[in-house]
Nucleic acid binder design. Structure first.
Lengths: 196, 196
DNA sequence: TTTATCGCTTGACATAGTGTCAAGTTAGCG
DNA sequence: CGCTAACTTGACACTATGTCAAGCGATAAA
Protein backbone atom coordinates (compact mmCIF):
# COMPACT_ATOMS: atom_id res chain seq x y z
CA UNK A 1 0.00 0.00 0.00
CA UNK A 2 2.75 2.39 0.82
CA UNK A 3 5.60 1.14 -1.34
CA UNK A 4 7.92 3.66 -2.98
CA UNK A 5 6.59 2.97 -6.44
CA UNK A 6 2.96 3.27 -5.42
CA UNK A 7 3.57 6.53 -3.56
CA UNK A 8 5.46 7.88 -6.53
CA UNK A 9 2.60 7.10 -8.92
CA UNK A 10 0.17 8.60 -6.47
CA UNK A 11 2.11 11.87 -6.50
CA UNK A 12 2.29 11.83 -10.28
CA UNK A 13 -1.50 11.42 -10.37
CA UNK A 14 -2.09 14.31 -8.00
CA UNK A 15 0.23 16.53 -10.02
CA UNK A 16 -1.45 15.45 -13.22
CA UNK A 17 -4.90 16.15 -11.80
CA UNK A 18 -3.83 19.58 -10.67
CA UNK A 19 -2.25 20.37 -14.04
CA UNK A 20 -5.37 19.36 -15.97
CA UNK A 21 -7.72 21.22 -13.64
CA UNK A 22 -5.59 24.32 -13.97
CA UNK A 23 -5.21 24.04 -17.74
CA UNK A 24 -6.85 26.10 -20.47
CA UNK A 25 -9.66 23.63 -20.93
CA UNK A 26 -10.53 22.22 -17.51
CA UNK A 27 -13.36 20.17 -19.04
CA UNK A 28 -10.56 17.89 -20.17
CA UNK A 29 -10.19 16.66 -16.59
CA UNK A 30 -12.06 13.42 -16.92
CA UNK A 31 -10.58 10.32 -15.36
CA UNK A 32 -9.13 9.29 -18.72
CA UNK A 33 -7.54 12.69 -19.28
CA UNK A 34 -5.91 12.73 -15.89
CA UNK A 35 -4.68 9.17 -16.32
CA UNK A 36 -3.15 10.02 -19.67
CA UNK A 37 -1.50 13.10 -18.19
CA UNK A 38 -0.04 10.93 -15.43
CA UNK A 39 1.13 8.36 -17.98
CA UNK A 40 -0.96 5.46 -16.72
CA UNK A 41 -4.16 3.74 -17.74
CA UNK A 42 -7.57 4.98 -16.69
CA UNK A 43 -8.10 1.85 -14.64
CA UNK A 44 -4.88 2.33 -12.73
CA UNK A 45 -6.36 5.56 -11.39
CA UNK A 46 -9.01 3.51 -9.66
CA UNK A 47 -6.32 1.44 -7.99
CA UNK A 48 -5.22 4.64 -6.22
CA UNK A 49 -8.47 6.52 -5.79
CA UNK A 50 -11.90 4.94 -5.56
CA UNK A 51 -13.69 7.79 -7.32
CA UNK A 52 -13.19 11.10 -9.03
CA UNK A 53 -14.46 12.85 -5.92
CA UNK A 54 -11.84 11.16 -3.73
CA UNK A 55 -9.17 12.08 -6.24
CA UNK A 56 -10.21 15.73 -6.10
CA UNK A 57 -10.28 15.70 -2.31
CA UNK A 58 -6.77 14.26 -2.28
CA UNK A 59 -5.64 16.85 -4.83
CA UNK A 60 -7.00 19.65 -2.69
CA UNK A 61 -5.24 18.30 0.38
CA UNK A 62 -2.07 17.88 -1.65
CA UNK A 63 -2.21 21.54 -2.65
CA UNK A 64 -2.81 22.55 0.95
CA UNK A 65 0.37 20.75 1.91
CA UNK A 66 2.49 21.97 -0.96
CA UNK A 67 1.47 25.58 -0.37
CA UNK A 68 1.57 25.24 3.40
CA UNK A 69 -1.82 26.81 3.94
CA UNK A 70 -1.70 26.12 7.66
CA UNK A 71 1.39 28.26 8.02
CA UNK A 72 -0.04 31.07 5.93
CA UNK A 73 -3.20 31.25 7.98
CA UNK A 74 -1.23 30.79 11.18
CA UNK A 75 0.47 34.10 10.46
CA UNK A 76 -2.82 35.97 10.65
CA UNK A 77 -3.38 34.58 14.10
CA UNK A 78 -0.17 36.23 15.28
CA UNK A 79 -1.40 39.76 14.53
CA UNK A 80 -1.42 42.00 17.57
CA UNK A 81 -4.78 43.68 16.99
CA UNK A 82 -8.08 42.98 15.25
CA UNK A 83 -7.51 45.17 12.22
CA UNK A 84 -4.11 43.71 11.48
CA UNK A 85 -5.56 40.29 11.91
CA UNK A 86 -8.36 41.01 9.45
CA UNK A 87 -5.90 42.33 6.89
CA UNK A 88 -3.56 39.40 7.36
CA UNK A 89 -6.32 36.83 7.08
CA UNK A 90 -7.79 38.36 3.95
CA UNK A 91 -4.38 38.62 2.36
CA UNK A 92 -3.47 35.04 3.25
CA UNK A 93 -6.70 33.54 1.98
CA UNK A 94 -7.20 35.77 -1.04
CA UNK A 95 -3.70 35.00 -2.26
CA UNK A 96 -4.27 31.29 -1.88
CA UNK A 97 -7.46 31.30 -3.96
CA UNK A 98 -5.70 31.59 -7.36
CA UNK A 99 -3.73 28.46 -6.57
CA UNK A 100 -6.69 26.28 -5.68
CA UNK A 101 -8.98 27.81 -8.25
CA UNK A 102 -8.86 24.85 -10.64
CA UNK A 103 -9.72 22.35 -7.95
CA UNK A 104 -12.32 24.66 -6.45
CA UNK A 105 -14.06 25.03 -9.78
CA UNK A 106 -14.19 21.25 -10.16
CA UNK A 107 -15.78 20.88 -6.74
CA UNK A 108 -18.30 23.60 -7.46
CA UNK A 109 -19.21 21.86 -10.71
CA UNK A 110 -19.76 18.53 -8.97
CA UNK A 111 -21.70 19.87 -6.01
CA UNK A 112 -25.18 19.81 -7.53
CA UNK A 113 -24.95 16.13 -8.48
CA UNK A 114 -22.37 14.57 -6.18
CA UNK A 115 -23.30 14.36 -2.52
CA UNK A 116 -19.78 13.41 -1.42
CA UNK A 117 -18.16 16.24 -3.36
CA UNK A 118 -20.63 18.71 -1.88
CA UNK A 119 -19.80 17.53 1.62
CA UNK A 120 -16.05 17.75 1.03
CA UNK A 121 -16.30 21.23 -0.42
CA UNK A 122 -18.54 22.45 2.39
CA UNK A 123 -16.03 21.12 4.84
CA UNK A 124 -13.29 23.21 3.28
CA UNK A 125 -15.61 26.20 3.26
CA UNK A 126 -16.19 25.69 6.95
CA UNK A 127 -12.47 26.10 7.55
CA UNK A 128 -12.46 29.44 5.74
CA UNK A 129 -15.52 30.52 7.66
CA UNK A 130 -13.69 29.63 10.85
CA UNK A 131 -10.92 32.04 9.86
CA UNK A 132 -13.47 34.75 9.12
CA UNK A 133 -15.09 34.18 12.47
CA UNK A 134 -11.77 34.44 14.28
CA UNK A 135 -11.01 37.72 12.53
CA UNK A 136 -14.43 39.15 13.37
CA UNK A 137 -14.13 38.05 17.00
CA UNK A 138 -10.72 39.69 17.23
CA UNK A 139 -12.26 42.93 15.99
CA UNK A 140 -15.07 42.53 18.49
CA UNK A 141 -12.64 42.01 21.36
CA UNK A 142 -10.87 45.22 20.41
CA UNK A 143 -14.31 46.87 20.42
CA UNK A 144 -13.69 47.76 16.80
CA UNK A 145 -16.67 45.95 15.24
CA UNK A 146 -19.24 48.38 13.91
CA UNK A 147 -22.29 48.14 16.20
CA UNK A 148 -24.49 47.70 13.12
CA UNK A 149 -23.18 44.13 13.08
CA UNK A 150 -23.50 41.17 15.35
CA UNK A 151 -20.57 38.79 15.10
CA UNK A 152 -22.55 36.04 13.37
CA UNK A 153 -23.78 38.21 10.49
CA UNK A 154 -20.42 39.94 10.15
CA UNK A 155 -18.79 36.53 9.80
CA UNK A 156 -21.39 35.47 7.24
CA UNK A 157 -20.85 38.56 5.14
CA UNK A 158 -17.06 38.42 5.27
CA UNK A 159 -17.14 34.76 4.34
CA UNK A 160 -19.43 35.41 1.39
CA UNK A 161 -17.27 38.30 0.31
CA UNK A 162 -14.16 36.10 0.31
CA UNK A 163 -15.78 33.30 -1.68
CA UNK A 164 -14.02 31.71 -4.62
CA UNK A 165 -16.97 32.70 -6.81
CA UNK A 166 -16.47 36.33 -5.89
CA UNK A 167 -12.78 36.08 -6.72
CA UNK A 168 -13.62 34.37 -10.00
CA UNK A 169 -16.02 37.12 -10.94
CA UNK A 170 -13.76 40.01 -10.15
CA UNK A 171 -10.37 38.63 -11.17
CA UNK A 172 -11.25 36.27 -14.03
CA UNK A 173 -14.36 37.82 -15.48
CA UNK A 174 -13.79 41.50 -14.74
CA UNK A 175 -10.02 41.27 -15.25
CA UNK A 176 -8.96 42.75 -11.94
CA UNK A 177 -5.31 42.33 -11.11
CA UNK A 178 -4.87 39.95 -8.19
CA UNK A 179 -3.19 42.69 -6.21
CA UNK A 180 -6.01 45.11 -6.91
CA UNK A 181 -8.48 42.47 -5.81
CA UNK A 182 -6.72 41.90 -2.50
CA UNK A 183 -6.32 45.61 -1.78
CA UNK A 184 -9.92 46.38 -2.63
CA UNK A 185 -11.37 43.54 -0.60
CA UNK A 186 -9.24 44.54 2.38
CA UNK A 187 -10.32 48.16 2.06
CA UNK A 188 -14.01 47.27 1.78
CA UNK A 189 -13.88 44.78 4.63
CA UNK A 190 -12.42 47.41 6.92
CA UNK A 191 -14.84 50.06 5.73
CA UNK A 192 -17.81 47.78 6.30
CA UNK A 193 -16.84 46.04 9.52
CA UNK A 194 -14.95 48.61 11.56
CA UNK A 195 -16.69 51.11 13.80
CA UNK A 196 -16.37 54.71 12.68
CA UNK B 1 -46.70 25.67 -34.34
CA UNK B 2 -48.89 28.15 -32.57
CA UNK B 3 -52.13 26.27 -32.13
CA UNK B 4 -54.04 26.62 -28.88
CA UNK B 5 -53.27 23.13 -27.75
CA UNK B 6 -49.59 23.37 -28.48
CA UNK B 7 -49.29 26.70 -26.68
CA UNK B 8 -51.16 25.31 -23.73
CA UNK B 9 -48.84 22.32 -23.46
CA UNK B 10 -45.87 24.62 -23.77
CA UNK B 11 -47.08 26.64 -20.81
CA UNK B 12 -47.70 23.51 -18.78
CA UNK B 13 -44.14 22.42 -19.53
CA UNK B 14 -42.68 25.74 -18.44
CA UNK B 15 -44.72 25.67 -15.23
CA UNK B 16 -43.67 22.09 -14.62
CA UNK B 17 -40.01 22.91 -15.19
CA UNK B 18 -40.22 25.82 -12.79
CA UNK B 19 -41.98 23.73 -10.14
CA UNK B 20 -39.39 20.96 -10.34
CA UNK B 21 -36.45 23.35 -10.30
CA UNK B 22 -37.90 25.09 -7.27
CA UNK B 23 -38.78 21.88 -5.44
CA UNK B 24 -37.09 20.29 -2.43
CA UNK B 25 -34.92 18.06 -4.57
CA UNK B 26 -33.98 20.01 -7.68
CA UNK B 27 -31.84 17.13 -8.89
CA UNK B 28 -35.16 15.59 -9.90
CA UNK B 29 -35.33 18.05 -12.81
CA UNK B 30 -34.22 15.72 -15.54
CA UNK B 31 -36.11 15.77 -18.81
CA UNK B 32 -38.13 12.75 -17.69
CA UNK B 33 -39.04 14.33 -14.37
CA UNK B 34 -40.22 17.54 -15.96
CA UNK B 35 -42.20 15.63 -18.58
CA UNK B 36 -43.92 13.58 -15.90
CA UNK B 37 -44.69 16.72 -13.92
CA UNK B 38 -46.24 18.24 -17.05
CA UNK B 39 -48.21 15.07 -17.70
CA UNK B 40 -46.64 14.21 -21.03
CA UNK B 41 -43.99 11.78 -22.30
CA UNK B 42 -40.30 12.59 -22.24
CA UNK B 43 -40.21 12.60 -26.01
CA UNK B 44 -43.03 15.12 -26.26
CA UNK B 45 -40.75 17.57 -24.42
CA UNK B 46 -38.41 17.42 -27.38
CA UNK B 47 -41.28 18.34 -29.70
CA UNK B 48 -41.46 21.66 -27.86
CA UNK B 49 -37.84 22.30 -26.87
CA UNK B 50 -34.82 20.97 -28.71
CA UNK B 51 -32.68 20.57 -25.59
CA UNK B 52 -32.68 20.93 -21.84
CA UNK B 53 -30.73 24.15 -22.20
CA UNK B 54 -33.36 25.68 -24.48
CA UNK B 55 -36.06 24.60 -22.06
CA UNK B 56 -34.27 26.35 -19.21
CA UNK B 57 -33.77 29.49 -21.27
CA UNK B 58 -37.47 29.52 -22.08
CA UNK B 59 -38.33 28.94 -18.43
CA UNK B 60 -36.19 31.88 -17.38
CA UNK B 61 -37.82 34.12 -19.97
CA UNK B 62 -41.23 32.87 -18.86
CA UNK B 63 -40.46 33.85 -15.26
CA UNK B 64 -39.24 37.25 -16.40
CA UNK B 65 -42.60 37.81 -18.05
CA UNK B 66 -44.73 36.45 -15.25
CA UNK B 67 -42.94 38.56 -12.67
CA UNK B 68 -42.69 41.58 -14.92
CA UNK B 69 -39.01 42.12 -14.28
CA UNK B 70 -38.83 44.91 -16.82
CA UNK B 71 -41.35 46.93 -14.86
CA UNK B 72 -39.62 46.28 -11.57
CA UNK B 73 -36.27 47.46 -12.86
CA UNK B 74 -37.92 50.31 -14.71
CA UNK B 75 -38.97 51.74 -11.36
CA UNK B 76 -35.36 52.15 -10.27
CA UNK B 77 -34.73 54.24 -13.36
CA UNK B 78 -37.36 56.71 -12.20
CA UNK B 79 -35.51 57.60 -9.00
CA UNK B 80 -34.66 61.28 -8.73
CA UNK B 81 -31.11 60.94 -7.39
CA UNK B 82 -28.26 58.44 -7.46
CA UNK B 83 -28.70 57.11 -3.94
CA UNK B 84 -32.39 56.45 -4.37
CA UNK B 85 -31.66 54.78 -7.65
CA UNK B 86 -29.06 52.51 -6.06
CA UNK B 87 -31.49 51.54 -3.30
CA UNK B 88 -34.30 50.96 -5.75
CA UNK B 89 -32.18 48.85 -8.09
CA UNK B 90 -30.81 46.69 -5.30
CA UNK B 91 -34.25 46.19 -3.84
CA UNK B 92 -35.77 45.33 -7.21
CA UNK B 93 -33.10 42.84 -8.18
CA UNK B 94 -32.49 41.32 -4.75
CA UNK B 95 -36.20 40.65 -4.34
CA UNK B 96 -36.37 38.96 -7.72
CA UNK B 97 -33.51 36.57 -6.97
CA UNK B 98 -35.55 34.24 -4.72
CA UNK B 99 -38.02 33.73 -7.54
CA UNK B 100 -35.49 32.77 -10.19
CA UNK B 101 -33.25 30.91 -7.79
CA UNK B 102 -34.24 27.46 -9.00
CA UNK B 103 -33.60 28.27 -12.63
CA UNK B 104 -30.42 30.14 -11.78
CA UNK B 105 -29.06 27.18 -9.89
CA UNK B 106 -29.75 24.92 -12.87
CA UNK B 107 -27.87 27.27 -15.18
CA UNK B 108 -24.95 27.51 -12.80
CA UNK B 109 -24.81 23.73 -12.63
CA UNK B 110 -24.74 23.38 -16.41
CA UNK B 111 -22.24 26.14 -17.10
CA UNK B 112 -19.05 24.10 -16.71
CA UNK B 113 -20.15 21.50 -19.26
CA UNK B 114 -22.70 23.18 -21.50
CA UNK B 115 -21.42 25.93 -23.75
CA UNK B 116 -24.91 27.11 -24.74
CA UNK B 117 -26.13 27.26 -21.15
CA UNK B 118 -23.05 29.23 -20.15
CA UNK B 119 -23.69 31.74 -22.93
CA UNK B 120 -27.34 32.14 -22.01
CA UNK B 121 -26.56 32.63 -18.34
CA UNK B 122 -23.80 35.13 -19.06
CA UNK B 123 -26.23 37.04 -21.20
CA UNK B 124 -28.66 37.34 -18.32
CA UNK B 125 -25.81 38.37 -16.04
CA UNK B 126 -24.92 41.08 -18.49
CA UNK B 127 -28.36 42.57 -18.06
CA UNK B 128 -27.90 42.74 -14.28
CA UNK B 129 -24.48 44.25 -14.74
CA UNK B 130 -26.08 46.85 -16.97
CA UNK B 131 -28.38 47.82 -14.13
CA UNK B 132 -25.43 48.03 -11.74
CA UNK B 133 -23.60 50.23 -14.19
CA UNK B 134 -26.56 52.56 -14.55
CA UNK B 135 -26.83 52.89 -10.78
CA UNK B 136 -23.11 53.60 -10.43
CA UNK B 137 -23.20 56.16 -13.24
CA UNK B 138 -26.16 57.90 -11.59
CA UNK B 139 -24.13 58.15 -8.38
CA UNK B 140 -21.19 59.47 -10.36
CA UNK B 141 -23.33 62.11 -12.05
CA UNK B 142 -24.48 63.30 -8.63
CA UNK B 143 -20.80 63.41 -7.65
CA UNK B 144 -21.65 60.94 -4.91
CA UNK B 145 -19.32 58.13 -5.95
CA UNK B 146 -16.47 57.69 -3.49
CA UNK B 147 -13.28 58.87 -5.28
CA UNK B 148 -11.58 55.62 -4.26
CA UNK B 149 -13.61 54.06 -7.08
CA UNK B 150 -13.63 54.41 -10.81
CA UNK B 151 -16.99 53.60 -12.35
CA UNK B 152 -15.86 50.35 -13.96
CA UNK B 153 -14.54 48.80 -10.75
CA UNK B 154 -17.48 50.07 -8.73
CA UNK B 155 -19.82 48.40 -11.23
CA UNK B 156 -17.80 45.18 -11.04
CA UNK B 157 -17.94 45.10 -7.27
CA UNK B 158 -21.64 45.90 -7.02
CA UNK B 159 -22.42 43.26 -9.61
CA UNK B 160 -20.40 40.64 -7.76
CA UNK B 161 -22.02 41.65 -4.50
CA UNK B 162 -25.51 41.18 -5.99
CA UNK B 163 -24.74 37.76 -7.48
CA UNK B 164 -27.12 34.87 -7.04
CA UNK B 165 -24.31 32.92 -5.39
CA UNK B 166 -23.92 35.63 -2.77
CA UNK B 167 -27.66 35.58 -2.12
CA UNK B 168 -27.58 31.79 -1.91
CA UNK B 169 -24.79 31.87 0.62
CA UNK B 170 -26.30 34.47 2.91
CA UNK B 171 -30.00 33.62 2.68
CA UNK B 172 -29.97 29.86 2.11
CA UNK B 173 -26.78 28.77 3.82
CA UNK B 174 -26.49 31.36 6.59
CA UNK B 175 -30.27 31.61 7.11
CA UNK B 176 -30.60 35.34 6.73
CA UNK B 177 -34.13 36.61 6.35
CA UNK B 178 -34.72 37.92 2.84
CA UNK B 179 -35.55 41.32 4.29
CA UNK B 180 -32.40 41.37 6.36
CA UNK B 181 -30.41 40.44 3.27
CA UNK B 182 -31.86 43.30 1.23
CA UNK B 183 -31.40 45.85 4.01
CA UNK B 184 -27.84 44.79 4.69
CA UNK B 185 -26.78 44.76 1.05
CA UNK B 186 -28.29 48.19 0.56
CA UNK B 187 -26.52 49.50 3.63
CA UNK B 188 -23.17 48.05 2.62
CA UNK B 189 -23.47 49.23 -0.98
CA UNK B 190 -24.08 52.76 0.19
CA UNK B 191 -21.34 52.61 2.78
CA UNK B 192 -18.86 51.33 0.21
CA UNK B 193 -19.78 53.35 -2.85
CA UNK B 194 -20.85 56.73 -1.56
CA UNK B 195 -18.40 59.51 -0.85
CA UNK B 196 -18.08 60.43 2.82
C1' DT C 1 15.50 -21.27 -9.83
C1' DT C 2 11.02 -21.32 -8.85
C1' DT C 3 7.14 -18.98 -6.82
C1' DA C 4 4.39 -15.28 -5.17
C1' DT C 5 3.05 -10.68 -5.10
C1' DC C 6 2.62 -5.93 -6.47
C1' DG C 7 1.60 -2.51 -9.82
C1' DC C 8 -0.12 -2.06 -13.82
C1' DT C 9 -2.54 -3.12 -18.57
C1' DT C 10 -6.34 -4.41 -21.75
C1' DG C 11 -10.85 -5.02 -22.73
C1' DA C 12 -15.62 -5.95 -21.69
C1' DC C 13 -19.52 -4.38 -19.26
C1' DA C 14 -23.26 -1.89 -16.13
C1' DT C 15 -25.42 2.50 -15.40
C1' DA C 16 -27.39 7.20 -15.87
C1' DG C 17 -28.92 10.95 -18.56
C1' DT C 18 -29.36 13.43 -23.03
C1' DG C 19 -30.83 13.45 -27.42
C1' DT C 20 -32.43 10.93 -32.02
C1' DC C 21 -35.28 8.03 -34.85
C1' DA C 22 -39.21 5.40 -36.47
C1' DA C 23 -43.68 3.66 -36.19
C1' DG C 24 -48.07 3.87 -34.23
C1' DT C 25 -52.23 6.12 -31.84
C1' DT C 26 -55.87 9.42 -30.94
C1' DA C 27 -58.79 13.53 -31.46
C1' DG C 28 -60.60 17.07 -34.13
C1' DC C 29 -62.10 18.63 -38.50
C1' DG C 30 -63.15 19.28 -43.40
C1' DC D 1 -64.10 8.89 -44.40
C1' DG D 2 -59.68 10.41 -44.34
C1' DC D 3 -56.21 13.94 -43.10
C1' DT D 4 -53.31 16.20 -39.91
C1' DA D 5 -51.37 17.75 -35.50
C1' DA D 6 -50.00 16.40 -31.06
C1' DC D 7 -48.59 12.91 -28.69
C1' DT D 8 -47.04 7.91 -27.34
C1' DT D 9 -43.99 3.84 -27.14
C1' DG D 10 -39.84 1.73 -27.64
C1' DA D 11 -35.28 1.22 -29.48
C1' DC D 12 -30.87 3.18 -29.96
C1' DA D 13 -26.33 6.19 -29.98
C1' DC D 14 -23.33 8.68 -27.10
C1' DT D 15 -20.53 10.10 -22.99
C1' DA D 16 -18.62 9.63 -18.56
C1' DT D 17 -18.14 7.04 -14.27
C1' DG D 18 -17.18 3.06 -12.12
C1' DT D 19 -16.74 -2.41 -11.92
C1' DC D 20 -14.90 -6.86 -13.12
C1' DA D 21 -11.77 -10.38 -14.85
C1' DA D 22 -7.73 -12.03 -16.94
C1' DG D 23 -3.08 -11.38 -17.83
C1' DC D 24 1.74 -9.57 -17.77
C1' DG D 25 6.33 -8.20 -16.10
C1' DA D 26 9.52 -7.06 -12.52
C1' DT D 27 11.11 -7.78 -8.03
C1' DA D 28 11.78 -10.23 -3.93
C1' DA D 29 11.54 -14.30 -1.05
C1' DA D 30 11.89 -19.40 -0.59
Amino acid sequence: MSSDKSQDTRSRILDAAWRRLESDDPRKSRMGDIAKEAGISRQALYLHFPSRTELLVATARHLDEVHKVDLRLEASRAATNGIERLDAFISAWANYVPQVYGVARAFIAMMPTDEAAAAAWKDRQRAVRQGCKAAVLALHRDDMLDPEWDTKCATDWLWAHLSVENWERLVRECDWEQEHYVDTIQRIAKQVLIRK
